[in-house]
C-alpha cells in the first residue's frame, strides 16, 4: 500500500505542475497569438514551429531539457510549457484570424481602433477555438507531468516510477488512477467552462 499522505502530497505536486505549466502556457501563448496578427513573418514562424514541434515525441522534449536546463521542478515546467504552448497559440491564432472580413471592416467603419477591434471583435470570436486549444493543452500537460518525474519534478509520476522500479503493482495503480481522474476532470471542467464563457455568441 502507498501511504495516504505520500499520495496526497504527490497529487498536490502533480496539480501544481500541471496547472502551473498550463498557466504559463496560456499567458505566453495568447499574447504571442495576438502579436502574430501583426506580422506575417511572426505568424508563419510560430505556426510552422507549432506544427513541427507537435510531431516530436514528448519524451524527446523532456529529455532535451536536461542538458539545457538541468533537472528539477523548473526544467519540468518549462518542458511542459514547450509542448502545451503550441495548441493554444495555434488555435487562438486561427480563432482570431478566421473571422468575417466584413465584421472587421464594419468595426473599423464604426471608428474602433485596431486594438479595440482585437479586444471586442476578434478575441471574443476566438474563444471557442481558444478553449479547445486550452483543453487539449491541459490534457497534454497532465500527461507530460507524469513523465517529468524522470527529470526530478516529483508528483504522481514519482510514485509510478518507484512502483515501476520494483514492479510494485499497488504503487503503479495508486500513482496512475489519480492522473486519469484529473484528466477526466479537465475534460469535463473545460467543456463546462467553454459553455459558460461563450453562451450567446456561439450558441
Amino acid at each position: 500500500m502507498v501511504p495516504v499522505d505520500t499520495l496526497t502530497n504527490a497529487t498536490i505536486q502533480h496539480l501544481t505542475l500541471t496547472y502551473g505549466a498550463l498557466f504559463f502556457s496560456v499567458v505566453t501563448a495568447i499574447p504571442l497569438a495576438i502579436l502574430s496578427l501583426f506580422s506575417k513573418r511572426l505568424s508563419n514562424a510560430v505556426l510552422t514551429l507549432a506544427n513541427l514541434l507537435q510531431a516530436i515525441p514528448s519524451f524527446a522534449v523532456v529529455a532535451i531539457v536536461v542538458p539545457l536546463l538541468g533537472i528539477g521542478f523548473t526544467p519540468a515546467v518549462i518542458a511542459i510549457v514547450v509542448r502545451a504552448l503550441l495548441p493554444i497559440i495555434k488555435n487562438t491564432y486561427i480563432g482570431l484570424k478566421d473571422i468575417d472580413a466584413s465584421a472587421v471592416s464594419s468595426a473599423r467603419g464604426l471608428g474602433l481602433t485596431e486594438w479595440q477591434i482585437i479586444r471586442y471583435i476578434r478575441l471574443p470570436h476566438s474563444y471557442p477555438a481558444m478553449f479547445a486549444g486550452m483543453k487539449f493543452a491541459a490534457i497534454l500537460a497532465n500527461s507530460i507531468a507524469i513523465l517529468t518525474a524522470i527529470i526530478g519534478s516529483g508528483g504522481l509520476g514519482s510514485v509510478i516510477f518507484s512502483g515501476l522500479s520494483n514492479l510494485n503493482t499497488d504503487k503503479i495503480i495508486a500513482g496512475s488512477l489519480p492522473t486519469i481522474g484529473i484528466a477526466i476532470f479537465i475534460d469535463v471542467s473545460f467543456t463546462l467552462l467553454e459553455r459558460v464563457i461563450t453562451p450567446r455568441t456561439h450558441s
Binding site: 514528448s58 497532465n142 500527461s143 507524469i146 509510478i160 512502483g163 515501476l164 484528466a183 477526466i184
Partner: peptide, 17 residues
Amino acid sequence: NIAETIPTLALLVLLLP
C-alpha cells in the same frame, strides 16, 4: 474520446499487470 484523455504513461503502466 474519454480514453484519449488518459495520460499515455498511465495507460502504459496500467497494462503492465
